[in-house]
């Protein structure tokens, strides 16, 4: 069947080629870069350059750099707090909307989803203004009550960033969960009702188990997203001294590549970051599969 072959090639070919060029090839190239170095010969390194294999040297350099390991621990800590907060909030909002009467539900759902339409950097700019003394009405109101909040201080800045991320994506995650809640057969609730189940029992025994796939999905995407933290700290950086150029692994890699022109080390740092994201995602999936039925 020549026609069938041609069809498969025509339909699948473009996607496969683009996938290879923009996803597979860069991964391969990053791995290659991360195990090689550029060596300059001649006086003052002005002679010819050559690429040499250096094994895991860049990985060792990255992992022995206290600033980089600190940035890794920082995003891990960030994810450990951010992911549960995000998922609990999104699930709670979805369940509340599901329980509320029809009036107003559409309005509230739209309002919660709204921030997803604002680009992350603009959301960061916006919250940056709201964190800045002299500009922020939040700080004004707090000062009326004698409260002195410092959103941009060294101990609070990470959680100020967490607030931006939560604000942006909670509504999106909520929508994914709402979509699954809507697909549950309503008869199920009726049957439970007749059997005398309370509203709380319906939530914990029926709704939560049935929306589990949506919760798992949003959790994995939230883990991958939070580990990549980059735009928010970069935008807030001019406002505070608490964010260093190596505040997150992505910032460190960006800095290594474009400020220090050390692409090889930057590649190693990117690979390490992707590995951390993978380890956490798979660990979570494994945990879920073991406890699930």
């Amino acid at each position: 069947m020549r026609g069938r072959r041609l069809a498969i090639l025509g339909l699948l070919g473009p996607f496969t080629a683009l996938f290879a060029a923009t996803i597979a090839l860069p991964i391969g190239f990053a791995l290659y870069e991360s195990v090689t170095a550029i060596e300059r010969s001649g006086p003052l390194g002005r002679g010819t350059t050559s690429t040499v294999f250096v094994g895991l040297e860049h990985y060792a350099t990255a992992l022995s750099d206290p600033a980089f390991t600190a940035s890794l621990w920082r995003v891990v800590l960030f994810a450990l707090v951010q992911v549960p907060v995000m998922i609990v909030l999104a699930t709670t909002l979805a369940l509340m909307l599901d329980a509320a009467s029809a009036r107003g539900v559409k309005f509230f759902r739209s309002v919660y989803f709204l921030p997803y339409g604002i680009p992350g950097v603009i959301a960061s700019l916006l919250w940056g203004f709201l964190y800045t003394p002299g500009l922020s009405p939040v700080l004004d109101v707090a000062s009326w009550f004698g409260l002195n909040i410092d959103f941009l201080g060294a101990s609070s800045i990470l959680w100020s960033i967490a607030n931006i991320v939560t604000w942006q994506f909670a509504g999106y995650n909520m929508l994914v969960i709402v979509a699954q809640l809507k697909s549950i057969d309503g008869d199920l609730f009726e049957a439970a009702e007749i059997d005398g189940a309370s509203a709380w029992q319906i939530i914990t025994r029926i709704k939560l188990p049935l929306i589990r796939p949506a919760i798992v999905l949003t959790t994995v995407f939230t883990i991958i997203g939070t580990i990549q933290l980059f735009g928010e700290p970069l935008i807030l950086r001019p406002l505070t001294g608490s964010i260093t150029s190596t505040y997150t692994p992505n910032l460190a890699a960006y800095n290594e590549a474009f400020a220090n022109n050390n692409y090889n080390l930057a590649a190693a740092e990117s690979v390490l970051l992707a590995l951390v994201a993978c380890v956490f995602s798979f660990a979570f999936l494994k945990l879920v599969n073991r406890s699930g039925k």
Binding site: L12, F15, T16, F19, T22, I23, A24, L25, P26, I27, F29, A30, E33, V220, I224, I227, Q228, F230, N250, A253, Y254, A257, Y263, A266, A267, S270, V271, L273, A274, A277, C278, S281
Partner: peptide, 23 residues
């Protein structure tokens, strides 16, 4: 092939940006 594509969903986008720049 499908599983390889699926793995692509999980790749952090920012991890690709630097090698893409070099390419």
């Amino acid at each position: 092939l499908f599983n390889i594509f699926l793995a692509g969903v999980m790749i952090p986008g920012t991890a690709l940006a630097l090698p893409l720049f070099l390419l």
